[in-house]
Nucleic acid binder design. Structure first.
Length: 365
DNA sequence: AAGGACAGCAACCGCCCAACC
DNA sequence: CGGTTGGGCGGTTGCTGTCCT
């Protein structure tokens, strides 16, 4: 069960790859490119299964691989990403050009884990190695969330752990009337980053506030952008949720640089307006995220937090929603040169039911 | 010098999921 | 619509080199 047919075949070599095998595979891929892996062994003259070839190429032969020790910066990034994504090595690797998931996984298991323990940090939770008292508190918190999920209620603790988090860059998630989600911004490698964890939402002065565990990375990733004054907290107004479900990054949508004149982003005709300069009305975008449709299926893990809770959470945490919306409507033409990719929204469909499947989401940087 | 312990890493295994038939 | 196939991913294994006694 679960065993690939290619692996069942007899007489296939296993174990370490010889230089000759490497050469055959490398020559084949560089000549014909990556296609159907199951046919590679035959075409390349290898007594290996396709999977083995794929792995060898991805983890060792690929020419764009970075070799050698991990830099301090990479190390810090891995730790930060692991805190957010957990053991999602492929996603972590997507943020480290030239590094493979296997390499990062090995590095984590053999080195980083121990390093964190030495520093008194639990590598699983990224919190200080807990005392009995802390354990109890964490356990209580978990139980609380579990009970809430089971009961389908909206009784939430003051600090809520949501099953999703931000991405490395600004993210936009919108949905149309038929329930499709449109994402943009964020990770440029994965079309979608799975829902992850450790996003905290608190009610801070009646503003929805998200603890963004990646905030410390923004300086590295977006040196051109202004660092948030409140280091770990990004004030968000009129936000229902922030997600790391992002489309293929800015590369696949109209560039929102200062050189653009901004304009009208039409997703469901007139839902959102984007302004990146004073004369924003001069540019019209039409369905810029067509390639990045996020289906409800993809959203399932995101909505572990169930619909009703989301709706109520939305309403309670964004009590200033209408105010904010007014503000955005009034000010969406203001200059926002501080952040080349920040987007102002207006014309939210306030009259519509605010169901979980009808989010308008954005994430300021 | 020998051999046991340990660390690092490459590769495999088993599972999941989407595409295809 | 169910079965099959292939790609992808995370967990695990096992080999090899190094360190320590």
């Amino acid at each position: 069960m679960g065993r690939h047919s290619c692996c069942v075949k007899q007489k296939l070599r296993k174990g370490l790859w010889s230089p000759e095998e490497d050469e055959k595979l490398f020559n084949h891929i560089t000549r014909f490119g990556v296609g159907c892996w199951s046919s590679v062994p035959k075409l390349a003259g290898l007594q290996r299964c396709g999977k083995s070839c794929r792995l060898r190429w991805i983890n060792y032969l690929r020419p764009d691989l970075k070799r050698g020790m991990f830099s301090q910066q990479e190390e810090d990034l891995i730790i930060s990403l692991h805190e957010i994504l957990g053991n999602r090595w492929a996603q972590i690797a997507a943020q480290l050009p030239g590094r493979t998931d296997n390499e990062i996984k090995n590095f984590w298991n053999s080195c980083l884990k121990k390093k964190l323990v030495k520093q008194g940090i639990d590598p699983a939770t990224h919190k200080p190695l807990s005392t009995d008292h802390d354990d109890k508190k964490q356990e209580d918190s978990k139980i609380m969330m579990t009970e809430n999920n089971e009961k389908n209620t909206t009784t939430l603790p003051s600090s809520i752990q949501l099953p999703f988090s931000t991405n490395l860059s600004s993210s936009i998630l919108l949905n149309d009337d038929s329930g499709n989600y449109y994402g943009s911004g964020g990770d440029s490698n994965n079309a979608i980053i799975e829902a992850s964890r450790d996003m905290f939402m608190t009610n801070n002065n009646n503003k929805a506030t998200f603890l963004d565990p990646l905030s410390s990375l923004y300086a590295d990733y977006f040196p051109h952008q202004q660092q948030q004054p409140n280091n770990n907290y990004h004030q968000l107004s009129a936000v229902t949720a922030v997600t790391n479900y992002c489309g293929g990054g800015f590369s696949s949508m109209p560039s929102l640089t200062n050189s653009d004149q901004g304009g009208h982003v039409s997703v469901t005709d007139q839902l959102v307006k984007e302004s990146s300069s004073n004369n924003s009305s001069s540019n019209m975008y039409t369905s810029p995220w067509d390639e990045n449709i996020i289906t409800n299926k993809m959203m399932e893990p995101f909505f572990q937090f169930n619909a009703i809770k989301c709706e109520d959470l939305y309403k309670t945490s964004c009590s200033s929603w209408e105010e904010d919306n007014q503000e955005h409507t009034h000010h969406h033409h203001t200059n926002n040169t501080a952040s080349s990719s920040s987007i102002h929204f207006s014309n939210y469909p306030l009259s519509e039911d605010l169901t979980a499947a009808n989010f308008d989401v954005f994430h300021h940087i």
